[in-house]
Design a binder for these strands. Structure first.
Lengths: 288, 288
DNA sequence: AATTATTAAATGGATCACCCATTCAATGGA
DNA sequence: TCCATTGAATGGGTGATCCATTTAATAATT
């Protein structure tokens, strides 16, 4: 308690309340024309207001990635709210991938480059909450991947194909050394690279989100049963060859058939495949 | 400074730190081989831990939609954290659509049915942040809708087709009465219904998210220029007829051609079409 | 007895005033 | 010149306190 002398602007001067919405206590002179009984859905809370305010600045282009917001204490004062409630808003925006908070002097709240992994979390929550089913997810994945193959055949660049080639080599190595779980990780990466080769980040984001979940299941299956897809690298090479030749038909057929065999693998001994096992916590190697 | 007498329980009792993770400083015996210089990405904060803990319960099925979490004061005590930081976590989960907080006795934090609109927000943020471009979004939308037509032809039920029919009637009415912006709202609904008719909520969610953004542009365009797509309802009827006959080729062709003409409409006088105008705030009629 | 006010308790919403740990630039000594 | 020290700024976190809303129990009224 050394700084008892803190020159804290101690007045506070009762400026705290004025910014509160004045409750509009429904003194509706209600008489006259029967104002039909509709109330606003629910009173807007300050943190929502703050989030929206910041998102607005973002949409307007006033705030751009890399920019820094004022320090918490200062921003709170500017907005006329307490630091705690401001932090609730910042937290939400941070979880949304919009901000990154950094400690220390020269720290602060920085606008982020968008984090595409956020969609993964949406999918995961929807699955956890039972809003979507594993079946729907798998089905969507098959269809979207089919689309990806088309686009990749049309748009994949040399660098994309090289990256896929390198990935296959890692897969071969992992297979040779018996590192099954690493191989699953390679698969995850394979689809990520494939998605990226479409040249469309929206598509890529979508594919990544459904693939991330799918791979959790594969991971859980492999980890628990020790089974592994046979001739994986070989199949990948065939697929990549078709892709390189821009042979949509063949590439599409190969991938679809592979997906089906993976699906069969997952579905044998279905009792072991629990949604909870696959979703619960972050597996090693799946870390962000 | 009236309350100088505050009997603040100043002991603080040093119970604050024990719940912190002890950094897990990667003492992994790392197989002797030169542990390369990697540090944990950043220290885990309590609110993240809390969020994860709750999500874990969700994934495990311990918590289900409709369930209520303990009251803030109690839960904070159970977790050994302050109420403030617990609230940061709850806020984040609320924004994520996982929880809903309700005031009053008998209030509390209730697990929600998943809110599929959350993906819209992700897309919006990605666009605001410049992570994805409007072009990518439009392109993805065209491709995904093509897929939707295939699936809808295969899976649409009578009820789905009826809903689309009803939507077209509303569109006709809006056209007749010159309510152009309402007609845009009808369009948004049309695609929502179309997406739903695939029978796959994952696909539907994806389509909704890209369509929601797209419709903001259309809305802004119509609102500012007063132009309107000609023969809209007529085209919709043709499309619906093809869909009803499960004629994928025709339906696909009709939709694609329509999308192209909309695109042309949006692109004329491009100067007026600002990303910011379209994204900033919620337009009337687009309210959730 | 039925209905209507009133009250009280529980709960989320918000604020204040702190303290701590981290970070980094400025400072100062070797 | 280089390295250690210091100190201020900043996010992370705490605990006490008050407010507003909601609901059930209770009392008052008809």
């Amino acid at each position: 308690m050394s700084t008892k002398s803190s020159p804290r602007a101690s007045q506070r001067s009762r400026t705290a309340s004025p910014n509160r919405r004045e409750r509009a206590t429904d003194h509706r002179a209600a008489g006259a024309a029967a104002a039909p009984t509709f109330k606003p859905i629910h009173t807007r809370r300050t943190f929502e207001e703050i989030c929206e305010r910041i998102r607005e600045q973002l949409a307007l282009g006033v705030l751009k990635p890399g920019d820094k917001l004022p320090a918490e204490r200062e921003l709170a004062q500017q907005l006329g709210v307490s630091r705690n409630v401001l932090r609730e808003a910042l937290r939400s925006l941070e979880m949304a991938g919009v901000l990154r908070l950094q400690k220390g002097v020269k720290g602060g709240a920085f606008i982020q480059q968008g984090d595409t992994r956020r969609m993964n979390e949406v999918m995961r929550d929807m699955l956890s909450l039972g809003t979507i089913s594993v079946r729907e997810l798998s089905e969507a994945r098959v269809h979207v991947l089919d689309l990806v193959v088309q686009l990749a055949c049309a748009n994949a660049r040399r660098a994309d194909l090289d990256a896929l080639e390198a990935n296959i080599e890692r897969t071969e190595l992992a297979t040779k050394e018996g590192r099954l779980l690493d191989r699953v990780e390679c698969s995850r990466e394979f689809y990520k690279l494939l998605a990226a080769s479409t040249g469309n980040k929206v598509i890529a984001m979508i594919v990544d989100s459904v693939t991330e979940i799918h791979m959790r299941f594969v991971y859980a299956k492999v980890a628990s049963s020790g089974v592994a897809m046979a001739r994986l690298a070989e199949k990948r090479r065939q697929f990549l060859a078709a892709l390189s030749e821009r042979n949509v038909e063949l590439a599409s057929r190969l991938l679809r058939s592979h997906l089906e065999s993976v699906q069969r693998m997952l579905e044998q001994d279905p009792g072991a495949m629990s949604l909870h096992v696959a979703l619960a916590d972050v597996q090693p190697g799946m870390r962000r």
